[in-house]
Amino acid sequence: MAAGGDHGSPDSYRSPLASRYASPEMCFVFSDRYKFRTWRQLWLWLAEAEQTLGLPITDEQIQEMKSNLENIDFKMAAEEEKRLRHDVMAHVHTFGHCCPKAAGIIHLGATSCYVGDNTDLIILRNALDLLLPKLARVISRLADFAKERASLPTLGFTHFQPAQLTTVGKRCCLWIQDLCMDLQNLKRVRDDLRFRGVKGTTGTQASFLQLFEGDDHKVEQLDKMVTEKAGFKRAFIITGQTYTRKVDIEVLSVLASLGASVHKICTDIRLLANLKEMEEPFEKQQIGSSAMPYKRNPMRSERCCSLARHLMTLVMDPLQTASVQWFERTLDDSANRRICLAEAFLTADTILNTLQNISEGLVVYPKVIERRIRQELPFMATENIIMAMVKAGGSRQDCHEKIRVLSQQAASVVKQEGGDNDLIERIQVDAYFSPIHSQLDHLLDPSSFTGRASQQVQRFLEEEVYPLLKPYESVMKVKAELCL
């Protein structure tokens, strides 16, 4: 049975990233139509530049190519590739079939990587351009969430054990800070992308030097003109047959890092959902379990974690691919890159769409948070109580021993009897502590235990987050809708 299948058929496997999760716009960027249309555009740009620099290419040939950029006979191309065992030459023939007058000058002087690699770089750039505003929107939604809850005390956790208090907004800023680093890295790697350009079979530009009869300047002009037509500021000066596969490492490393950030955020949300302090959106008709109707599973956060793990592992592909590119190139890269580049971007696209949807509907339960604080705060307040007693004339050592005994009794009630923490009640009825009984409410005010959390939130948002989001103001209103 021949390899390949009808990918629109229910009898043929289709990647869930495309069929179930990723956005239509990201799927289109990695589609065959987008790819092969870009090949034709690159052939047109090459012909236009070659004509401008004096090669015998007519206006009629150029116009014929322009008129057929979208006229792609995919069936013919597939048949040609089956016959020739070469995808680029299959599309040269297919393009030439609908451009008979231009057929002889299509791909003039070029090698397969002229269309293959340059198209990949265009796709990487455009895919990054799709991700950047999506990530900015996630940051914006979380920034709104953090600002609104900047002063809401909550129990902090280290080692997932109760620690000092923080605020809900401050905790959210930990998430935002990681995503801001990801946004900066995505922008950097996007701006650092260079075009492969017009380089020939081993990167020496020998074929173009021959076409222009040894004119170095025209060869350099050709490279520059096509690079500018493709919208790049610069091209690699040095290439082998391909652009260095280190570029793929750079791009997928940034995406993998984004995956790590999203995994951490969504894990926190899942843990908070278990504590009943916070939940992701839950639709009115949504079913959490087929057997347990009360369940409210954090399905979206779980999906993000599941896909983020996949995204983090994909960076190993370009690392290994770059390491086995012998001399000017081997074909070890080809099949692998067809999979890992598309999957990385479709996965990143999915987790950003999902995280935006989550961040637009996060639900906080202040009463649950308050109750958990009441359970733990008495123990945390013991040092403040000791200091207040010393100020009232008591002995630190005597007070410490009193607190120690009462704390152990209260802990026994919590752990052995399943009761509430009654340390404060014990202190309130103990005559030894009568000098500070009137101060206990103040000493137990949760806001006095959150330090500068709310001020940190305000400063972080104003100095770091809002300036970073400013270039994306025009796209901030787009909502994230999930079908599944």
Rank of each mutant, 00 (worst) to 15 (best):
G4I: 15
G8V: 15
D11L: 13
D11E: 09
A18G: 15
M26I: 09
F30E: 02
F36V: 14
F36N: 06
W43N: 02
W43D: 01
Q51E: 04
L53G: 04
E60N: 12
I62T: 11
Q63I: 14
E64M: 08
S67V: 13
N68E: 13
M76I: 13
V88S: 09
M89N: 00
T94R: 10
G96S: 09
P100Y: 11
A102K: 00
A102P: 02
G104Q: 12
T111V: 00
C113I: 05
D117S: 01
N118D: 02
L131F: 13
L135Y: 05
R137E: 07
E148R: 11
R149A: 08
T158I: 00
F160V: 01
T166E: 00
T166P: 05
T166S: 04
V168W: 04
C172F: 01
I176N: 05
Q177C: 13
D182K: 06
N185F: 05
L186I: 13
L186C: 13
K187N: 12
R188Y: 00
V198F: 01
G200M: 03
G203I: 00
A206V: 05
D215R: 11
D215W: 07
D223S: 05
F232Y: 07
K233L: 11
Y243F: 14
T244E: 00
V247H: 10
V247K: 09
D248M: 00
V254D: 08
R270W: 03
L272K: 05
P281K: 03
S289Y: 01
M292V: 02
P298C: 11
P298D: 00
S301Y: 03
S301M: 11
C305Y: 02
C305A: 08
S306I: 00
R309S: 06
H310N: 08
T313P: 13
T313G: 11
M316R: 05
D317H: 04
L319V: 08
F327A: 13
F327I: 06
L331M: 07
A335E: 02
N336F: 02
R338V: 01
R338W: 04
A342S: 13
T350K: 04
I358P: 07
E360T: 01
V368C: 07
E376R: 01
N384Y: 07
I385A: 04
I386P: 02
A392W: 02
R396H: 03
C399K: 04
I403T: 06
V413G: 11
D422K: 08
L423R: 07
S438R: 11
Q439C: 13
Q439Y: 14
Q439D: 14
D441W: 07
L444S: 01
P446R: 04
R452G: 07
R452T: 14
S454R: 11
E473G: 11
E473N: 15
K477S: 10
K477L: 13
A480D: 13
